[in-house]
């Protein structure tokens, strides 16, 4: 491992995740109606972004790594698309 990163970035990201978790829990108790789901999902997406860029070190942007990360995202899309097809067309 040549470019070993000082763990500072990792610790920062971890603290960031914890802060976002606290935010999720707090906001869950604020009645926003349908807004609650939107807020929770937005925070979730930010968390996933933190994990992907910092813990998974995707900012290195090496071709094959990105292909595999993209594949993960694409497969998540399949799960959501085919899965919601059932929920949306149920009679």
């Amino acid at each position: 491992m040549t470019d070993w990163r000082p763990p500072l970035a990792l610790i920062g990201a971890w603290l960031g995740l914890l802060a976002l978790l606290a935010l999720t829990v707090t906001l869950a108790y604020v009645p926003l109606g349908a807004g609650n789901a939107v807020v929770a999902l937005t925070i979730g997406t930010i968390k996933a972004g933190l994990v992907a860029t910092i813990f998974m070190e995707l900012w290195h942007r090496r071709g094959l790594t990105l292909v595999f990360a993209g594949a993960g995202l694409f497969w998540l899309g399949i799960l959501l698309y085919l899965g919601s097809m059932d929920f949306l067309t149920r009679t």
Binding site: L82, M85, D86, F87, L88, T89, R90, T91
Partner: peptide
């Protein structure tokens, strides 16, 4: 399982 018919056809 009660899955929608559209989904069953696609699968």
């Amino acid at each position: 399982s009660g899955q929608s018919l559209v989904a069953s056809l696609v699968f």
